[in-house]
Design a protein around this nucleic acid. Structure first.
Lengths: 239, 239
DNA sequence: CTCAAACAGCTTGTATACAATTAAGATATA
DNA sequence: TATATCTTAATTGTATACAAGCTGTTTGAG
């Protein structure tokens, strides 16, 4: 059964069981099929995937390390639901990383590699056009990941992976319905600037790109939240 | 028995078993009591710490995620031994993060918090003066971690944690004997610049600080290496 | 004597059973 | 009725047993 799922998800052959489970839960969270705050019960997940709790626990630890789920000792895992403040910190970090990544890509990547990126953005466009917002958000994240790959720096790539995941969560949580969050138009523009090796322009485009995410955050600040402390903070006087 | 170790290490009370095991292996690696490349056998570690393989595996995964050990599927964990190229990437990442951190600290940290840092550097000085190089390297890393804490940005802090660990490994691996690697003098200077809220000077000091690490890398490049591919690259013709 | 295939051991991967902890409901007391 | 304590069910934490995989050695054929 797991085999079938693995194939349907197009995972590489060498995937072990926890990789598969990890990838499925990860995708489900980023595509908003599981809401932020949802409790992730180990035994239920085990039954769903047909594996023991051992495997589920490994997958959950990994998700916990990437901050996509929150692990509460003795109380299990829940899907992360970043607060506005946490979201701001995450976007801030991305600013720093994306700037460096963009510059590295311009310095190091070959034309052919950059062209490949375009295909990915076409896929992304496709998803949004046919209304699959979840997959669109994920592909949009993948675009930024591929950029980091072309930067040729392993630690930056792994940090970017974590940041992009968390950003997708934030977008899923805070951005209102139909609006395209991370418009593929901007991705196309960015690729062109990189292709022309125009560092200043590319970095500036990237920063604007992130501005858009952050502006949405401010705009939708009043969205209902799971963070009880912030919901009721106006009732109780501050210490 | 574990209890005793926990106390002797001054861990906080809420430490669970894997935290303790994790911390011990971590410290042992960073203090060079285990050499890079050493195989970490699960059962042996289990006996040493008096816990089951379950706990050891959790600790090893975590170390693997932080890149302090390398996990090879079906073949166990070994202490990481970064190649020169990997080391360069790590130092490059640190340049980016440390610049951002330094600026944030100057913007956000209170005088009292900065003063606290000074005590830490005194401890560091102490260690080197009395010849405890291992502990010195660890404290030097802790200095940079504290800086990241004062920056008030959770994702940056967690990335910094991973980078600092890896850097300590690099220093332990490549730097020759007695030389102080990350001289505490520079830490003192840095603190002063931050205290005066002199961004340009502080950032420049920090960059020089990292230059020193990197220069050592180049200088000691000929040190015997575990990277067989590079060792024998002169024998076989390139494809 | 060289090389290859089969075997044995040891180590890691996974499932399961049991212990410890938490959360919720029930009962009792003021 | 409100509060506190006890009890119980559910869930997580840990140990252990068994399965699968790798490594090194032995054995046999060329």
């Amino acid at each position: 059964m797991l085999e079938k799922i693995a194939v349907s998800k197009g995972q590489k052959g060498k995937s072990t069981q926890d990789d598969i489970v990890y990838a499925h839960i990860f995708d489900a969270i980023l595509e908003q099929r599981i809401a932020p705050g949802t409790k992730l019960n180990e035994e239920s997940l085990g039954e769903i995937f047909g594996v023991s709790r051992t495997i589920i626990r490994r997958a959950l630890s990994r998700l916990g390390y990437e901050q996509v789920v929150v692990l509460r000792p003795n109380r299990g895992a829940v899907v992360a639901s970043p607060s506005i403040e946490e979201a701001r910190q995450i976007v801030f970090s991305r600013r720093i990383i994306e700037k460096a990544v963009t510059e590295l890509v311009i310095e190091n990547a070959e034309d052919a590699q950059i062209d490949k990126l375009k295909k990915l953005v076409l896929d992304e466009q496709n998803c949004f056009d046919r209304g699959d917002r979840g997959a669109g958000i994920r592909l949009s994240g993948e675009f930024h990941l591929r950029m980091a790959e072309l930067a040729n720096n392993a630690p930056l790539l792994s940090f970017q992976r974590s940041l992009v995941s968390q950003c997708s969560l934030i977008i899923a949580q805070y951005e209102s319905g139909a609006k395209s969050h991370c418009s593929y138009d901007e991705h196309f523009e960015l690729i062109d600037a990189i292709r022309q090796r125009d560092k200043a322009k590319a970095v500036s485009l990237m920063m604007h790109h992130l501005d858009h995410i952050e502006k949405k955050l401010n705009f939708d600040e009043d969205t209902s939240s799971n963070d009880l402390k912030s919901v009721f903070s106006n009732i109780f006087a501050k210490k």
